[in-house]
Design a binder for these strands. Structure first.
Lengths: 377, 377
DNA sequence: ATTCGCTATGAATCTTAGG
DNA sequence: TCCTAAGATTCATAGCGAA
């Protein structure tokens, strides 16, 4: 790849880096080291699993199981695999933005070593996610449980990175209004989605389903973000990124995979931007100062506020504080104090009298926000 | 404990070792080192998870979460935790029979380190098993996925131990005649099963459900086998072993837990025969996330949904939310909003166009459930 | 006896803007 | 970088008391 860098005075929207939406050919660590530091929002990595297979496996009908015995999955020892793992995790960490996150998928053959290395290098695990397969391969010998899942580790760059992207509200709304759990159910990649080579055989032994990558990106990226995949393979990450209006960068060694992935991604039609809007919750709403309700005349100084059951009454003061007897403070502090709690959301706790009933002052905040939007605040 | 050993010429059925069906008090490694080598069939270990908590956590209702902040879960560093882990895994391996197996349970905080150490010490992983919780604690701050599972590693003593116990056929028969998968569904331990202290509070912070231990023993032991638990705690392993006609050995440091476990186990009545309740782990009506219809391609992002009379039309967004103009949210929230109601069942309210007519999206949910049932949801 | 509503709680690495 | 204050945030289940 070339050594072109983003100019410091140009935002990505003004000048697109030449490595965006491309597949870099070569060794994963070498390619990573050529990318600018802190330049990608999310990394999805599907590294070699270090499967340790001896001999062939046959199904009960004597057909042979097409094992993952590619040369790139051969390591001499756990130590060799660990060294490989640490090298790419370290190179990836340099490229990740401070508030970026990384996803790594693996099986019991490798995921424990990968997870320990991630912790050792300073990544901070946010969740481990279980991909439950609806249609896993059976255990043919009947000597173990059916291996029906794979594990993903989702981690931030550092323990103190708090501002990573997590589209909580959108995930919850899409999940019947309950928060998304750490166990996900998806079919393995089969049928027309599975890329085939010239012989009609599967092109890549471990092609991941697009639905899995879509869930990952919808959870942890925003439209326009950059998703890096250092083990690009058949290009699922790129295809899903393009469809969902995200940028991708792929790294891959094998020309056969690069060609197939390129063609695959070129055929993807991006979704319309309007369908890509991410549902945002209250956190994204602009802040409203309680005093601004007084400024705008929605609440008069001297007005009385009550809790929902009218157990307490407090007086609004001209400076935007609330008072009960000697005690005065913010709507939150006074709400907490009367309940004997450490914290309280005054917006939902306090009410005002209207039409003989009580209405939350949060209703006034909502109205104030509409005014702010009109004013382009 | 005493230094009594099994005579070499007597089988366990002829002379019962004095440490069988007892709880050894003391440090885990020291106690393990006093047991005879190659003397137990299965080890179940629930070691400290090394949670790293900062400050208190409160529920949205301001109640405080009772965190696991016990002294036995405090380690200075990953290195200290690794040293602890290697020490007990090594001592446990000496005690394990050549064809014995070990189960270790953990969360993302520790399981990757534990798994890597197990591989380093020569244990051979047979499966990783996911315990999916029906009723996990929510994520209260909405900053991560709900942590809804724990991970267990099942391993043999060596890579070449082939004669370990695995009751394949009975598991399959108990599971509707399909192989038992690597993801299991159980509730957490609550209600009358949960041991309480004199104040009525939970006796032990991490008591495991008996159903989980029963599945483990039914899978990997035979009646009369010896099950060792080096972190005995409230004694679930002992209680289930006695009930299922297995022997146990527990190791525990805290006298309070020993006393409670002893009383608990004494109260257990062994089953006459091992015709046990089948824990199929299937639930009545698995929940379907609306977004899973998008994942599976049944609904496309950008598609339009209508109410039965086509009075309203809404657009499906890629993140699984529904949008009408500026308003967006779950199928339920948007259904409620357009009708001016507080609540709405989006599954029955919204329809899609098919064959020129309208069909409820609930029809798609029914189809999705068929796939989930196959996966044992 | 049954239902309904309210409360309690579980292995938790659980915020963020602004001064 | 540190400190303060605003204010956002929960699902399933068991138990209990009232109706």
């Amino acid at each position: 790849m070339s050594a072109v860098r983003l100019s410091a005075d140009l935002s990505p929207s003004q000048q697109k880096a030449d490595w965006l939406d491309t597949i870099l050919k070569g060794d994963c660590v070498a390619a990573l080291n050529k990318l600018p530091e802190k330049s990608v929002d999310v990394i999805f990595a599907d590294p070699p699993y270090n499967l340790q297979l001896n001999g062939d496996l046959h199904r009960p009908d004597q057909s042979k199981v097409d094992a993952v015995d590619d040369h790139w999955d051969q390591f001499d020892s756990f130590a060799a695999y660990d060294a490989f793992t640490r090298a790419w995790l370290l190179a990836a960490r340099r490229v990740l933005k401070p508030n970026g996150t990384i996803w790594v998928i693996g099986s019991y053959h490798n995921i424990f070593r990968v997870g320990a290395s991630m912790q050792d290098l300073g990544y901070w695990i946010l969740n481990d996610i279980v991909w439950r397969k609806t249609n896993p391969m059976p255990n043919f010998r009947g000597r173990r449980f059916q291996n029906a899942h794979e594990t993903m580790i989702w981690a931030s760059r550092d323990a103190n990175s708090k501002s990573y992207t997590f589209n909580y509200d959108s995930l919850k709304a899409a999940n019947d209004d309950v928060q998304m759990r750490s166990d996900w159910l998806f079919p393995i990649c089969t049928g027309s989605e599975r890329l085939k080579d010239d012989n009609g055989d599967k092109l890549h032994p471990t092609q991941k389903p697009e639905a899995l990558l879509a869930r990952i990106m919808l959870a942890s990226t925003k439209p326009g973000d950059v998703v890096l995949d250092p083990f690009f393979g058949s290009g699922t990450t790129g295809a899903v990124a393009k469809r969902l209006g995200r940028h991708f960068v792929g790294i891959e060694r094998e020309q056969e995979y690069i060609d197939a992935a390129r063609a695959r991604i070129d055929a993807v039609k991006p979704l319309e931007s309007t369908t890509l809007t991410v549902l945002s919750g209250k956190r994204a709403e602009p802040r409203v100062a309680f005093v601004s309700l007084i400024d705008s005349g929605m609440i008069k100084p001297g007005a009385t506020l009550y809790d929902a059951k009218k157990r307490w009454a407090a007086t609004v003061r001209a400076d935007g504080t609330l008072a009960i007897g000697e005690q005065a403070g913010s709507i939150h502090r006074i709400g907490a104090a009367v309940q004997g709690l450490d914290a309280c959301n005054g917006w939902t706790f306090w009410h005002y009298e209207r039409n003989g009933g009580l209405t939350q002052i949060d209703e006034l905040r909502r109205i104030a926000r509409l005014g702010m939007e009109r004013a382009g605040a």
